[in-house]
Simulated assay, not measured.
Amino acid sequence: MSTQGDDVDYGVKEGFAFGISIVAAALLFVAGIVAVFQGISALANDDLFVIGTEYVYKFDLTTWGWIHLIIGILAILVAGGLAVGADWARISAIIIASISIIAQFLWLPYYPIWAILIIALDLVVIWAVATWKPSNIA
């Protein structure tokens, strides 16, 4: 048997969860925009990036540019689906954010602070999307 207090608590939790999903969509959108800019920068001007020592997982900057550009565009599209509450967007957001984390980890030797920032955004997106339960909203 539920009481009125339980109903209010349930509504607050679901409202908070819905707010988290909107924040996740916004963060995924921002991470996607940054990845697009990162890709465009790598494609347009190879001199912009500082290249350090040799690493095992090395691509040329044009390849990295295309990788970041594609991931960024996909993240923006998934963020749009997440914002309108599409079912496919939740799993897609987790997949795109996970792929982005892997790409940023491999990008660490080139620009570590930039990569760590995007990894942090992607982790928040994964947490927010994974904790939201849209099936409980009436």
Rank of each mutant, 00 (worst) to 15 (best):
L121D: 02
Y55P: 00
S100K: 00
E14V: 14
I95W: 10
V34E: 06
G5Y: 14
K58D: 08
P112Q: 07
S92K: 00
A130V: 06
F49N: 06
L117A: 14
T62D: 05
P109E: 12
A24C: 02
L108K: 02
G52E: 10
F49G: 02
I95T: 13
F59D: 03
I118A: 02
D47A: 08
W88A: 15
W88C: 12
L82D: 13
Y10P: 01
D6M: 12
I33F: 04
I119C: 04
D46N: 15
W107Y: 15
D122N: 07
L48F: 15
D47R: 12
F105I: 15
G15N: 11
I73A: 08
S2P: 07
R90F: 10
A83I: 10
T3Q: 10
N136S: 09
F37P: 01
L28W: 00
T63W: 11
V125P: 00
A120C: 08
W127F: 03
G11Y: 10
Y111A: 14
V23L: 14
I76W: 03
W132N: 08
H68P: 00
K58G: 01
I118Q: 05
G80I: 10
L117R: 06
I96F: 04
P134S: 02
V56N: 08
A35C: 11
I101F: 02
I22K: 07
I118K: 00
A25Y: 01
I99G: 13
G72L: 09
A128L: 11
P109N: 09
N45G: 03
F29V: 08
I101E: 07
K133M: 13
V125E: 03
P134W: 03
N45L: 04
V30P: 05
A86N: 13
G52T: 14
I116V: 15
F37A: 14
T131S: 11
Q38L: 13
I94Y: 06
D60W: 07
P112L: 05
Y57F: 14
M1W: 14
A130D: 10
L28Y: 01
K133D: 15
S100H: 02
L108H: 08
N136V: 10
T131A: 06
A103S: 10
K13H: 10
V34H: 03
I33C: 08
F59T: 06
V50F: 15
A103I: 04
Y10A: 15
A25M: 05
V129Y: 03
A24L: 02
T62I: 07
D47W: 13
N45T: 07
A115V: 07
V84D: 14
V124H: 00
I70Q: 00
D122V: 03
G15K: 03
A17H: 05
L121S: 02
D46M: 12
G11D: 11
S2N: 11
A130C: 08
W114R: 06
I67H: 04
F16S: 10
L117M: 12
L61K: 01
V12D: 07
L123R: 02
